[in-house]
Design a protein around this nucleic acid. Structure first.
Length: 426
RNA sequence: GGAGACGUCGCAUAGCCCGGUCGAGUGCGCCUCACUGCUAAUGAGGUAACCAAGAAAUUGGUUCGGAGGUUCAAAUCCUCUCGUCUCCGCCA
C-alpha cells in the first residue's frame, strides 16, 4: 500500500511511477477524490458521534422520570449517526479498493518499460566451451540416474519429478551451503508453514495478480504458498518490532508450490519450471534509511552463492513494468544455461520499501518514540532450479558432472557425479 | 473426533451474572521527579495503538481476539468465527 501522505502531498510522483510501470495514472486521481470524500464523511460522522456520546452521558445521569423523554430524542439522533457511519464506511471502502490497486512507487533509477528493457549491471564468469555436444540437464539427469521425470509424471502429472540419489543429495547440499552462508551473514533460519489462510495470502498481495498461480485446498480453505516470502512477510504482521539492535534477517527454507497455469507449453523439458521445488529465501525487516544498502548486500550474497557454485551469470536491473506490484527496485541474477544458449533467472531480490509493511502493518519505533512502517526486502539464495545450471555448466564429455569445490564438503568430499556403470553383458 | 474453560491497555489480572458512573481498576515492568545516598528502599506522578482536524498546544473519533446483531447506549446481552488451554478418544 502506498503512503497516503504522499498521495496528498505529491501525487505527481505516484503518477510518474505508474507511468513508468505502464499502469493506470487515472487511479491516482480517483484515489485523491476518494480520499477527500472519505475525510469529509469521516468528519461528519465523528461530529455526530461526539454529540451522541455527550447525550448518552446525560441519559445515564438523568433521573428516572426524565429518562423516557431523553431516550426518545436519542433514538432520532441514533438514526442519523448510523447513516453517517454507513456513509463514512462506504467512503473508506471506496478509498481502500483504489489505494490497494496503486503499485509501489519505483526508485528513480529504475528504467521505464517492460521485460526486455532491463539494465545490464554486470556479467561475471566465463561461459563454458565444450569440445563435445553438451547434453541438457534432463538428459544428464537420466544418464546419471539422478532426475526421474518419467516416474514423477506417472505419479503426479506433468512438471513433477523425482530427485534421486546424488540428485537429491546435491539439492540438499546446495540448500545447506546456502543456509550456512545465510547464517554466517546474520540470518536466522526459519522453516515456514507452506499452507496458509486466505487472509494471509491476500494480505501479502499474492491473491491479486498471482491468483491463477496458487494451489487451493477447498476442504480446509487453505492455500499452498509459492514462496516462503508469504510466511516470512506475515511473520511480524501487526507488530511493532524492535530494530534498535539492527535489522531482522530471516532465511526461510520451504517447499514451494506453483500451478504454472499461465505458462503452458513453456519450459516443458526438465526441471526448469515445475509445480514443486525447494527454496531458501532471505527476508529482511529494516529501517527505511537502511533498505537500499541492504538491497545491495542481498545481491552480494546471491552473487557469492553463484560464484561458489562456479556458475557464469549476469545481473540485471529490472525495468519498471517487470517489477512485482510491491517492489520499488529489483535485481535478477541469471545463470548461463549452455543448451539454451541463454541466461535464465536463478535469483531475484526486491526492495519493497514500506509498501508491503504498510499493508501488513509492521512498524518500528523511531528515535522520537513515534511508530513508522518498516521496509522489507527479499531475495532468493538457492532453489531447485540451480541444479539445471550446475549440471549443464559442469558436465564432462562422458556425461559425468564435476561438483563445484565449495559443495564438496556437503557431499562427503565427492568430486564427480558419474554415470552408472553399464551392467555386465548389457 | 467428543466434552469443557478461557481470550481485557508490555506482562499478569479485576470488571461481564445484574448494559450507562469503564477507554477501563490493581500488581509487575518501564519512564520522570522528590528524598535518601550508594549498584537498593520509599513516596508522588506518568506509562497503548490507530484515524481525522490543526502550524502547534490540543480537540474529536475508533479499538476490550475478529466479524455481525440487539439497544438511545455494549468489555458487559445474542450469533458466528479464529485462537489458546484442560480432560477423553484416536493415531502417524
Amino acid at each position: 500500500m502506498i503512503d497516503l501522505n504522499l498521495l496528498r502531498e505529491n501525487p505527481e510522483a505516484i503518477k510518474a511511477s505508474q507511468r513508468a510501470r505502464g499502469a493506470s495514472q487515472e487511479l491516482v486521481d480517483q484515489a485523491i477524490s476518494a480520499d477527500t470524500a472519505w475525510r469529509q464523511n469521516l468528519g461528519a460522522f465523528e461530529a455526530l458521534r461526539a454529540e451522541q456520546n455527550a447525550f448518552s452521558k446525560q441519559v445515564a445521569a438523568a433521573p428516572k422520570d426524565q429518562k423516557q423523554a431523553l431516550v426518545a430524542q436519542a433514538q432520532e439522533l441514533s438514526a442519523r449517526v448510523k447513516a453517517a457511519d454507513a456513509a463514512a464506511t462506504a467512503a473508506q471502502q471506496e478509498l481502500d479498493t483504489l489505494i490497494w490497486k496503486i503499485e509501489n512507487v519505483v526508485m528513480p533509477d529504475v528504467p521505464m518499460g517492460g521485460e526486455d528493457d532491463f539494465k545490464l549491471v554486470k556479467e561475471v564468469g566465463s561461459k563454458p566451451v565444450f569440445d563435445f555436444e553438451p547434453r541438457d540437464h534432463q538428459e544428464l539427469g537420466e544418464l546419471l540416474d539422478i532426475i526421474d521425470i518419467t516416474r514423477g509424471t506417472k505419479i503426479a502429472g506433468s512438471r513433477f519429478y523425482f530427485l534421486k540419489g546424488m540428485g537429491a543429495r546435491l539439492e540438499i547440499a546446495m540448500m545447506n551451503m546456502a543456509l550456512d552462508q545465510a547464517a554466517a551473514a546474520g540470518f536466522t533460519a526459519l522453516i515456514t508453514p507452506t499452507l496458509v489462510r486466505p487472509e494471509v495470502m491476500a494480505g501479502t498481495g499474492f491473491l491479486g495478480e498471482h491468483a491463477d498461480e496458487i494451489y487451493y485446498l477447498p476442504a480446509d480453505d487453505l492455500y499452498l504458498t509459492g514462496t516462503s516470502e508469504v510466511a516470512l512477510a506475515g511473520y511480524h504482521r501487526d507488530e511493532i518490532i524492535d530494530l534498535e539492535d539492527g535489522m531482522l534477517r530471516y532465511a526461510g527454507w520451504s517447499t514451494c508450490y506453483r500451478r504454472e497455469a499461465g505458462s503452458a507449453g513453456k519450459d516443458t523439458r526438465g526441471i526448469l519450471r515445475v509445480h514443486q521445488f525447494n527454496k531458501l529465501e532471505m527476508f529482511v525487516y529494516a529501517k527505511p534509511e537502511d533498505a537500499e544498502a541492504e538491497h545491495q548486500r542481498l545481491l552480494a550474497l546471491q552473487e557469492q552463492m553463484l560464484q561458489k557454485c562456479e556458475l557464469p551469470y549476469r545481473v540485471i536491473y529490472t525495468a519498471a513494468g517487470d517489477l512485482g506490484s510491491s517492489a520499488a527496485a529489483k535485481y535478477d541474477a541469471e545463470a548461463w544455461v549452455p543448451t539454451q544458449d541463454a541466461f535464465r533467472e536463478l535469483t531475484s531480490t526486491s526492495n519493497c520499501t514500506t509498501f508491503q509493511a504498510r499493508r501488513l502493518n509492521v512498524r518500528y519505533r523511531k528515535e522520537d518514540g513515534k511508530t513508522a512502517p518498516v521496509s522489507t526486502l527479499n531475495g532468493t539464495l538457492a532453489t531447485t532450479r540451480w541444479l539445471v545450471a550446475i549440471l549443464e555448466n559442469h558436465q564432462q564429455a562422458d556425461g559425468s558432472v564435476r561438483i563445484p569445490e565449495a559443495l564438496r564438503p556437503y557431499l562427503g568430499g565427492q568430486e564427480f557425479i558419474t554415470p552408472k556403470p553399464a551392467k555386465a553383458g548389457a
